[in-house]
Design a protein around this nucleic acid. Structure first.
Length: 356
DNA sequence: TCGATTTGACCTGA
DNA sequence: TCAGGTCAAATCGA
């Protein structure tokens, strides 16, 4: 147990160092002509590293914090099992997987406590036929229930890759009573299957991949499209946008100063990734793009949990938490250490505290 | 045959 | 105690 913690601390340090190194490479890369793909690839690696580090922290918070991290459901949540996508000792993961399946069984019915966000989606009707609700993810229906005093039954879906990828994302779909063309969709958990809805049609979607190939970052074109998409529907300023190493981050919360750090979280944090990928950029639910606005929020049980501690702009911190637990872990690091961020050379105006 | 859906039973939390 | 959420066997369809 102790040795396992030691191993994870080493892994954490290793991931952070790796992220730092790659960030340096990326910085150098900006000084020479280089393809977007190369940069994108470097970014993927950085994001993957920091994601792993964050997961390690969330899984095994520092001793000083651990006393306040006593929520068993939080630390044992299936999301923490994302680590299986990485490269630690095999036996470590086999054990984790075994535990995970047990935990999954035990906690399956506690999913109510997972952060939840809701959306209303209007179905498109083409040729008099309702188009099926699609958000780019692959869902498998596992139940339907008549709800008391509700006109329509509620359907329960889970990610198709729950078993193969330990993806714990679920959603509930219920037709609105006021407007039968509108569906209330509640998402719980988040996709760790890395199955990112692409901007292509669902038919051409790729199958999900593991983390290594796929701290999904789409590629330059798609994230540029994302930024464009965002600017079309929100007030984010993106004129003179240079190739941005932190795609998609700016779209989420453009009216606060959390952008920069968010970039590391949105794509990779199990919860937030779902939001950015499913809600904001779903190819099949363009109507959702209208939700991309300053008022788009992570709501319900997730109020106020995404905060950054940044007393001065040189230091950066992330607080990731689920309010349903009231506990959170803090992760501090300085972007100045890697030479990016402080002067935000590649960030669209308005995204960085110093640029606002 | 295999994966997806349906549906009644069971479990949990309020 | 009961409504909501999940399980899992039965069924369907490609």
């Amino acid at each position: 147990m102790q040795s396992e913690k030691g191993w994870e601390q080493k892994a954490l340090v290793s991931e952070l160092i790796q992220g730092l190194e790659i960030a340096r490479k990326l910085k150098e890369d900006f000084n020479i002509p280089s393809s977007i793909d190369t940069r994108d690839s470097l970014l993927q690696r950085i994001l993957c590293s920091y994601n792993k580090a964050l997961l390690l922290l969330r899984r095994n918070p520092p001793i000083s914090n651990s006393e306040t991290m006593h929520q068993p459901t939080q630390t044992s949540s299936p999301q923490s099992l994302q680590l299986r996508h990485q490269s630690p000792p095999k036996e470590h993961f086999e054990g984790a997987l075994k535990n995970h399946h047990q935990e999954l069984k035990q906690t399956a019915k506690k999913r109510k406590k997972l952060p939840k966000r809701t959306e209303q989606v209007r179905v498109k009707i083409e040729n008099g036929v309702e188009e099926p609700l699609q958000d780019g993810y692959s869902w498998r229906k596992y139940g339907q229930k008549n709800i008391l005093n509700a006109k329509y039954p509620r359907s329960y879906y889970r990610c198709t890759f729950q078993k193969s990828k330990d993806c714990c994302a679920t959603k509930q779909v219920q037709r609105s009573e006021e407007d039968p063309n509108v569906f209330d969709i509640s998402y719980r958990g988040s996709h760790v299957c890395s199955h990112v809805p692409s901007l292509k049609s669902p038919d051409t979607e790729e199958k999900p991949q593991g983390c290594d190939n796929n701290v999904q970052f789409h590629g330059a074109e798609s994230w540029r499209e994302r930024v464009t998409n965002c600017t079309n529907t929100s007030t984010v300023e993106t004129d003179n946008v240079t190739p941005n190493p932190f795609p998609s981050f700016g779209c989420m919360i453009q009216d606060n100063h959390h952008m920069f750090l968010s970039s590391f979280v949105l794509e990779n944090d199990p919860f937030f990734s779902t939001i950015s990928q499913t809600s904001l950029f779903s190819p099949n639910t363009p109507e959702l793009n209208s939700l991309v606005s300053p008022s788009f929020h992570v709501h319900d049980e997730f109020d106020g949990v995404f905060e950054k501690l940044c007393p001065d702009s040189n230091a950066a911190g992330i607080v990731l938490a689920d309010t349903s637990t009231t506990n959170f872990s803090t992760f501090d690091f300085s972007f100045d250490a890697v030479g990016i961020g402080a002067s935000c050379p590649s960030m669209p105006r308005g995204f960085h505290p110093k640029c606002t």
